[in-house]
């Protein structure tokens, strides 16, 4: 419990400071904040007043930050300058696609990465060689390149999957997001596969696994209970790190497949310098990143009795 409380406090601290950074970033830009926010767009005095209001530009700096932060905490991210919509609404529309994409990619990492890694770890010979080679090349394939290749082969070439868009309804969405999820997960799955393979091999030669066999425990059980189970301890942290990493990777893949997720929204907002949107997405992503990393640590503490529960020695 102490562990949890400490981690939560640390996360809260990091989030406050990083939201300050995100907020303060626009003051680093050359020119006045107004000019920066408007970016040469011609705007009516009304809009200008709204902007001054949204960022409370008439108040001292820290009051501005305080107002902005309290608004953000209440889910009010202000208005997009590009199309005068509530940023909160924009995000709400985009969130499902991104969530779904990251979720599917996470599944791919676990199934493909961990699965192939286990396969290569427990089996010597050709399976092992192929997986090893694949993972050595796979981690070097940029997600956007994988996206393009998958798209041209499976969508344009074979026509098995739709080329663009996110689909409607659950199954249709999954169908639309399969290739993007594969592209997004590929490099991570490659790394995870290799690390899993190494972990399995180390665990296979570990004394407790060898001794379990020496005690007459059936081979399948030794594999399951001692080799695979124990190797999942280090693997789970790696998988967690990579799932957290999907957050940033998702921008690129969404953009490549023109999906209507947070990533494309962010890319568009950066290109158009629509700063309210950039700030909102940045904060949400930093929070999501932190929360996933925290969950990974909690999960790890839960599956490894040696962490955090030391009673006696």
């Amino acid at each position: 419990m102490m562990f949890m409380t400490r981690r939560l406090l640390a996360l809260a601290g990091v989030l406050v400071v990083s939201s300050f950074l995100v907020f303060a970033a626009m003051y680093a830009a050359p020119g006045s904040p107004e000019n920066f926010l408007v970016q040469g767009r011609t705007v009516s005095p009304d809009v200008l007043a709204a902007i001054r209001e949204q960022y409370s530009l008439d108040d001292p700096f820290f009051v501005r930050f305080w107002n902005w932060l309290t608004n953000v905490l209440q889910g009010d991210f202000g208005q997009s300058l590009a199309n005068r919509q509530e940023v909160g609404d924009l995000l709400a529309n985009r969130l499902p696609t991104t969530l779904m994409l990251v979720l599917l990619a996470a599944i791919v990492i676990v199934v493909l990465g961990v699965g192939l890694g286990i396969g290569a770890g427990v089996r010597d010979g050709i399976v092992d060689k192929v997986v090893l080679l694949g993972s050595n090349l796979g981690f070097a394939v940029p997600t956007f390149f994988a996206a393009l290749l998958l798209m041209s082969i499976f969508s344009v070439g074979l026509g098995w999957f739709p080329v663009f868009g996110s689909g409607t309804g659950l199954l249709d969405r999954i169908w639309h997001l399969t290739l993007p999820a594969l592209a997004l997960a590929l490099p991570s799955a490659a790394v995870v596969a290799r690390i899993t393979r190494t972990a399995i091999r180390e665990e296979r030669d570990s004394e407790h696994s060898v001794m379990a066999s020496a005690r007459g425990v059936p081979a399948m059980l030794v594999l399951r209970r001692h080799v695979i189970r124990n190797s999942m301890l280090p693997v789970s942290t790696i998988v967690g790190v990579h799932i957290a990493g999907l957050i940033a990777g998702s921008f690129v893949v969404e953009y490549a497949f023109t999906l209507d997720g947070l990533g494309t929204l962010l890319v568009g907002a950066v290109q158009r310098k629509d700063f309210a949107v950039v700030q909102a997405i940045a904060i949400i992503l930093v929070a999501a990143f932190g929360i996933i990393n925290l969950l990974v640590d909690v999960l790890y503490a839960a599956i490894d009795p040696r962490v955090g529960t030391r009673r006696s020695k």
Binding site: S18, A25, M26, A248, V270, A282
Partner: peptide, 18 residues
């Protein structure tokens, strides 16, 4: 730790936005 809190690409995009 604070820098670790930002995914690399996100930090880059924030800078590019500014």
């Amino acid at each position: 730790d604070l820098l670790f809190a930002f995914p690399n690409l996100l930090l880059a995009m924030l800078a590019i936005a500014v």
